[in-house]
Design a protein around this nucleic acid. Structure first.
Lengths: 147, 147
DNA sequence: TATTGTTATACTCTATAACTATA
DNA sequence: TATAGTTATAGAGTATAACAATA
């Protein structure tokens, strides 16, 4: 009997991808919870901080989520004073998402924690190996023939 | 304005992991649907074929899912004549999961399709690069300090 | 007609608790 | 007391459809 009886599942690249992501996501969730954030709300906050004035629709596209699922998320960030919905001159349908000072500060602190998290979970890999990993992964998701 | 406005999210290894897995899972789901299988039921069937007589508890451990969530899955495989639950002499609590001929045949056909799927979705990478990717990923999930 | 934000809803996946029969 | 299989249920996370206001 082997120590890890996966019956050959680990021969598949996708299996290894899934197991690695599972480890990473579990640790990331733990790290971000200390900031009152989930992975998706951290991503949303970071995009808003780095793209001030973005609309909810454009943010949903950037995050590859449905715009309907952004509403409560933004409600939460706005309710905590991290971002504001402000009117867009010339288009009264849109709300420009503006980061508040507290949102910028939280995004910066959380980003430092996320970087420490990545240093930890990818600590078995050298910096060169991490760059190689990113390069290989990006070529998979950015492969020609995909939107 | 850049073409992919991710606001720097792609600097994170985890982001690239998630996007790559998302692409892989979407294609895998489509491929396996032709066999009436989901990713988890394919994995279960493959483990049963390669580990005849395994119990549901041990299978759940191997797949890293809850045993309660295996019941309906095995009901489905058994109902389709792919596997059978057979009594274990000496322990009447356990059911040995035995692959039927049809299950072995389906697992073999599905495995060929999954290999073709991996050749397709990882087609941007050479064989050496795919081996490198697997090696890097395995070191992440098998990193010392994790169960 | 199309789009933005919103609400409500449904669906999938997963986790937990409790039960039975056995050990 | 503990374990295997089972049932029921609850909670995430995500997807879809429809609506009002606006373009």
């Amino acid at each position: 009997m082997t120590e890890n009886p996966d019956a050959g599942l680990s021969q598949f690249i996708g299996y290894n991808l899934k197991r690695a992501l599972s480890v990473v996501q579990a640790d990331l969730a733990h790290v971000l919870a200390a900031f009152g954030l989930r992975a998706v709300s951290y991503s949303a906050l970071l995009v808003i901080v780095r793209t001030p004035g973005i609309s909810q629709s454009d943010l949903a596209d950037a995050l590859r989520i449905e715009k309907s699922n952004l509403v409560q998320l933004i409600d939460d960030l706005a309710g905590r004073g991290l971002v504001t919905r402000s009117p867009v001159p010339g288009d009264r349908r849109r709300h420009a998402l503006i980061p508040a000072e507290a949102g910028i500060a939280l995004a910066e602190a959380a980003t430092r924690a996320v970087q420490a998290h990545e240093d930890k979970v990818f600590g078995a890999l050298s910096l060169v190996e991490r760059a190689t990993l990113v390069h290989l992964l990006r070529r998979v998701w950015a492969m020609p023939g995909r939107a």
